[in-house]
Design a binder for these strands. Structure first.
Length: 670
RNA sequence: GCCAACCUAGCUCAGGGGUAGAGCAGCGGUUUCGUAAACCGCAGGUCGUGGGUUCAAAUCCCAUGGUUGGCUCCA
């Protein structure tokens, strides 16, 4: 017997008068990470509470997590009641809700099943049943779940370390109670699960591995109140209204076609924005001393053998076949097998390097090849070579998504070849460049992540030390805060990731800078130092916006289709009040165009109200009403969004729009 | 690739074994108009594709292509 029987968190809080119905758990100062939050049913030594705590209320982020995890239990209960024979596996809370993975022999769940499950869940919630926590001996738990036929749970229990504390959670009326092996925390009673919605079904695999049995995952979300759930659903609506695929269609920016799956066609308006983005980046490049190069699309796979892509990236590449390649059927068959082989032999790599051409999935191999094209001097370094080359990557059918995940795209890609001692300065300079560009696009909330050496890596530890230090020093010396992501670096070097928050609070990774000492070595890159000795350069891979296709999607959603004047495909639309002023409107249009303003006009017989409505739909930044008054005074009645700016002379309109249409520039530093 | 749902006019969608529908957009005409939808008319579809069941298929079944939401969050 425990000599000092512990009291539950509920009893301890009650004794302190800190318990009220909105409290679902406590967060202990004495514990770290996910173990810090314990529910009210958990026995605690009084000393732990004395070490400091705060209560977790049902409407806090941590409280929601508890509610969602408990809701997952209730869902599993409902599923097992409705579909006997279904086995449970894992059912965690997620960022936006929860899921539970089931093994339903010979069956799947449809969306109609979700309604039934939801109804059953409401019954369970309405029963206002308390959650009970019970400590259990390891072997007892294994025996219990073996009897229940819960083979996945048993497998999981057996894999846990010997000293793990085993607990089970139960809810439901005696006789039909539902039990799960779980470490909690859970809400005190099902009645706290006030607002529940099941959202989706999906296939998944036991422990996320395709070789394991297929499971059925049911997604849902839960909130502490119906109102909070409604707000969340409304937010989903908002995101839907901004969906770049919807806006892309409505605003005639881009289109997709089955003849080139997951490969966007940019329509004239979209292409204007896309090119304008690239022109802006080029403008920045000039000031940051980048040199743009243009490199081939299709290479002998020799290049990708050297870079390592053939061994590690072959299944994501496209291959270019010429008629001549097919002349020898037997050879072609060998090539086929080599491409498909998961682990390629040296012989197979040789064969592919000799016989096959590959479409580039990345620019770096070509850039290395070009660097080694002639002897390089230390005087040339750092060499910053930028490339807007088109890349092709074969993404699996299920993962493509609008412009955000495509099979052909281009990046604002560049590689910086430099001496090791130049690394830090280059990273500092790149950070300044990022500040300027992200500011220009209106992304002000930028978070930086430093990803350090992973377990599996290439290169000496001394190189890793230097590279990580350069990244970290560059951040510290310029006073930037960052999060450390230990072990998340690429196998060839550490990196910084730049994440921005968009207008509706979603976070996107855009830029990155990666230190690479692997590829220069593979390509045998050298430069001659000031003593005439050969040295190996360091290579920095870096992108600002990343994939321009993906950035287009992120930015389109960020601005909700309302592009700023400097990017908008048309900056102003002239709206005639009647046909009588069409001649003047055409003159005004020609004048604006001659001043470099991107202008269009609506000469249709619609009434002004309809023209405004249509033009607002197309999100032109400026509208210019042209009527008899304006024709008489050679003016335009300018309107920006809903603001009527009044009549302005043609010259003033042109000057105003031209000024606003210039590339954004960072304020001059003193 | 795997799980689920969807695919009907340029767009958004209705119809769900018995002659293919609406609104918007388009085209023609009338109206010449002052800040978020003037009016009348016309045209537009082998219902993603291919098979099958049936007297009869957009509708039911099978296959196939495409699209959408998922397939990282660990008891």
């Amino acid at each position: 017997m425990d000599p000092s029987p512990k009291k539950t968190a509920r009893e301890l809080l009650e004794a302190q008068g800190k318990l009220d119905p909105s409290v679902v758990a406590v967060k202990l100062a004495s514990r770290r990470g996910s173990d810090a939050v314990v529910d009210l049913m958990t026995p605690l030594p009084e000393t732990e509470l004395a070490a400091g705590f705060h209560v977790v209320r049902k409407d806090s982020p941590e409280g929601l997590e508890v509610i969602r995890h408990s809701t997952a239990h209730v869902m599993a209960d409902a599923v097992q009641k409705l579909f006997p024979g279904t086995k449970v596996t894992f059912g965690p809370a997620t960022d936006n809700g929860f899921y539970y993975d089931f093994d339903r022999p010979g069956g799947t769940f449809s969306e109609e099943d979700l309604e039934r499950i939801e109804a059953k869940m409401r019954e369970i919630v309405a029963s206002k049943s308390p959650f009970r926590r019970e400590a259990i001996a390891r072997q007892d738990a294994i025996d219990l779940f073996t009897r229940m036929g819960e083979t996945y749970k048993v497998e999981w229990m057996r894999s846990l370390p010997e000293d793990t504390e085993f607990t089970v959670y139960k809810h439901g009326a005696p006789g039909q109670e539902w039990v799960d092996f779980c470490k909690g925390p859970h809400v005190p009673s099902t009645e706290l699960l006030a607002a529940v919605k099941l959202t989706a079904v999906s296939g998944t695999y036991w422990r996320g591995d395709e070789r394991n049995p297929q499971l059925q995952r049911i997604y849902g979300t839960a909130f502490h109140s119906e109102k909070a759930l409604a707000a969340y659903l409304k937010q989903l609506e908002e995101a839907k209204a901004r969906d770049h695929r919807k806006l892309g269609k409505e605003l005639e920016l881009f289109a997709f076609d089955g003849t080139a799956v997951a490969s966007p066609f940019f329509l004239p308006r979209g292409a204007k924005i896309y090119n304008r983005m690239i022109d802006y980046i080029r403008d920045v490049y000039v000031r940051y001393r980048y040199e743009e190069i243009i490199t081939p699309q299709v290479y002998s796979t020799e290049l990708f053998k050297t870079s390592g892509h053939l061994a590690n990236y072959a299944e994501s590449m496209y291959y270019a076949i010429a008629a001549d390649d097919l002349a020898d059927g037997a050879k072609f068959e060998k090539v086929r097998q080599a491409i498909l082989a998961p682990d390629k032999s040296e012989e197979q790599l040789e064969l592919l390097a000799r016989e096959v051409r590959g479409v580039k999935p990345m620019n770096c191999p070509g850039h290395c090849q070009l660097f080694s094209h002639r002897k390089r001097s230390y005087r040339e370094l750092p060499w910053r070579c930028a490339d807007f080359g088109r890349l092709h990557r074969y993404e699996r059918g299920g993962v493509v998504h609008g412009l955000a995940r495509v099979r052909t795209f281009c990046q604002d890609d560049a590689h910086i070849f430099c001496a090791p001692e130049q690394m830090e300065q280059e990273i500092v300079s790149f950070n300044a460049l990022l500040d300027e560009v992200y500011g220009a696009f209106g992304f002000t909330d930028v978070r930086i992540k430093l990803a350090t050496r992973p377990e599996r890596r290439v290169g000496a530890d001394s190189l890793w030390d230097a590279a990580e230090k350069a990244l970290e020093d560059a951040l510290r010396n310029t006073g930037r805060s960052f999060d450390l992501a230990e072990g998340e670096g690429a196998f060839y070097g550490p990196k910084l990731e730049f994440h921005v928050k968009d207008a509706i609070g979603r976070s996107w990774q855009l830029g990155t800078i990666q230190v690479d000492f692997n590829m220069p070595a593979r390509f045998g890159l050298k430069y001659v130092d000031h003593e005439g000795k050969d040295q190996t350069p360091v290579m920095l891979h870096r992108a600002i916006l990343g994939s321009l296709e993906r950035f287009f999607a992120v930015y389109l959603e960020h601005v909700g289709g309302n592009f700023p004047v400097w990017l908008a495909p048309e900056q102003v639309c002239l709206l005639t009040v009647s046909e009588k002023v069409e001649d003047y409107a055409r003159e005004a249009l020609a004048y604006l165009e001659s001043r470099g303003v991107r202008a269009v006009a609506d000469f249709s017989p619609d009434k002004l109200g309809a023209k405004i409505r249509n033009a607002r739909g197309m999100r032109y930044p400026y509208l210019a009403v042209v009527g008899a008054k304006e024709a008489e005074t050679r003016a335009l009645a300018l309107r920006r969004g809903n603001d009527d700016l009044g009549a302005m002379s043609l010259e003033d309109v042109a000057a105003r729009i031209a000024a606003e249409g210039a590339f954004p520039r960072a304020p001059e530093k003193k």
